[in-house]
Design a binder for these strands. Structure first.
Lengths: 328, 328
DNA sequence: CTGAAAGCGCTTACAG
DNA sequence: CTGAAAGCGCTTACAG
């Protein structure tokens, strides 16, 4: 079963490959008789013709692949959903998503030089050097920033805002002695530190003492130890802002182990609104992220980077939202 | 910044492109002077040469991309981990993973014909028609079966075994009146139905009455309704085998809402051992899947399909394992 | 309005 | 041991 090429379509429809190309690519500026066009289209359909991506890429120097570079830490359900949306949205524009796990040992440079993607989308910050090299090669790079960033080709998901939102909610509920439950995995520090910074700044804004910080792993022991520390001293903690929902669930388990009531003794708020957050005991208050909106923004950014005629999307300001449940 | 080509390397090292190709591809059967080889290697490194994947693909008719086709339902953390492992493992063999979400509107046929992957890996069963077409085009297809399957190019994760394992564990704990908590999402039925079949068969084997089945969504209401139904009648259910951990957590929430104690009144067992399973109240007993082993198997299958000299891996028989915690 | 020809970068028979 | 040449399938100036 040799591949069906444009030459086959040309032969089948009795025209040249040039004409086939013009018809199939809807080249404007060139006028093709309706009859000819139809003949080509029919032949292509009859033969089941699909243009070779490799040949196209070789010719144009640019493939239809969007290289999505993942962070090197465990991706959670959030990034999962994000990629899923991206894949389907970009597919509608004839673009395929190639996922590169940051953990892979192959260098990023080798990969992008090999596949010549039409755009690169980083879900974690790139090394400046990589960004420059790709830009120099003419490949649009859409990056992610964890802080506020005005560049349209940088998608900013300001992590500090998340921490601030958590504190605002806890203060509203009357809490003044706060703690921050950091993740135990160091690779998350880029996120965790910024969320903590947001928590700290918000505490200061509200005139509260600095939050007490402890690392909490996804196990009861580690959470229990943190809870004990938080409850000790003159002013025991009455509310915990957790790095994310999983950490929050660990905190809940730790509080349970210590016989403390939630939210009466200690309130807990997470981040992400994972599907099981509402199933916790008690149901977990959390920060919901508009993943769909983020994915759409990212897809639009890529599309805008690809075509100067497409206006870059404006940063969605309202991506975070408190979901209040019984844990606060 | 035009691309560095093999011609540049040839010029730089004073040899022909043929020689460059021979050196860089470690072509055996051809002997190259050590001096020449070194000169070529140095020039390539100095210039930062990376062969064009497009040109290679066009030439050989086969790319270095492994197309991984996802199911059209929400992928959970399990598949997430799986893809991650695959990406890194295959990267070590110079292969890149291209993820195609089953949900995308573009047809699978168009995608594989366009990118000419060196292999296709289906994480959900393919339509026979698709499989045939790819095989006919000479593309090795590694599939996934949800039942026992002897074909080496089919990875079987016999779902019925999972259900059986759940029942065995519950029976060991002395339960005789069992229920099965099915997921509310219809797209999961390929998995859910087989796990249920395993539960049913095991009940029969143990001489128990047929399990009572109810669909449970990821919310307390739906779980509460299921629990009520299960507890009604002459012989109230005392143990629940859930489709997966998330559903199990919902069941736990339903039992809590009904004021039932776990495991004294009703025991619950899930599947997957998600990170938060051990944080539940009470910690959830579940079936652990050896994802790493599965990923390794899949990667090895792909590699074997690519190279006849590589022996296909033998099916890992021991991929499931009960993790007993306090919920049973 | 349509066709012949060149060239993207690579590898591999085929000659030397 | 090394080089000149062809060809993978496509698109696009350039001619007609």
């Amino acid at each position: 079963m040799p591949r069906v090429t444009s030459a086959d379509v040309a032969r089948e429809s009795g025209v040249s490959r040039t004409t086939v190309s013009y018809v199939l690519n809807a080249k404007d500026g060139v006028v093709i008789t309706d009859a000819t066009r139809q003949r080509v289209l029919d032949a292509a359909a009859r033969l089941g013709y699909t243009p070779s991506a490799a040949a196209r890429t070789l010719r144009s120097g640019r493939s239809d692949l969007v290289l999505v570079v993942l962070p090197d830490w465990t991706v959670g359900p959030v990034i999962d959903t994000l990629i899923d949306h991206l894949t389907t949205t970009l597919a509608d524009h004839g673009l395929s998503v190639l996922v590169h796990s940051g953990r892979g040992k192959g260098s990023l440079a080798d990969l992008w030089r090999a596949v010549t993607p039409c755009a690169v989308l980083g879900l974690a910050p790139f090394a400046d050097e990589d960004t420059y090299a790709m830009r120099r090669a003419g490949i649009p790079v859409v990056g992610t920033a964890l802080d506020e960033d005005p560049h349209p080709e940088i998608f900013s998901v300001p992590q500090t805002n998340i921490g601030a939102l958590q504190v605002d909610h806890l203060v509203e509920r009357g809490h003044r002695a706060l703690a921050y439950a950091a993740p135990a995995d160091d690779r998350l520090s880029a996120f965790a530190d910024r969320r903590l910074a947001g928590v700290q700044a918000a505490c200061q804004d509200h005139g509260l003492p600095a939050p007490r910080v402890a690392a909490v792993g996804l196990d009861v022991e580690s959470a229990t130890a943190a809870v004990r520390a938080w409850r000790s001293g003159d002013e025991p903690v009455t509310a915990v802002a957790a790095y994310n929902d999983e950490v929050a669930l660990a905190v809940l388990a730790g509080l349970r182990a210590e016989g403390l009531r939630v939210p009466d003794d200690v309130a807990v708020i997470g981040v992400d609104d994972i599907p099981t957050a509402k199933l916790a005991a008690p149901p977990l208050t959390t920060i919901w992220q508009a993943i769909d909106a983020q994915a759409s923004y990212l897809a639009a950014s890529v599309l805008a980077a690809l075509d100067p005629a497409v206006r870059p999307p404006s940063q969605t300001s309202d991506v975070f939202h408190v979901v209040a449940r019984e844990s606060t």
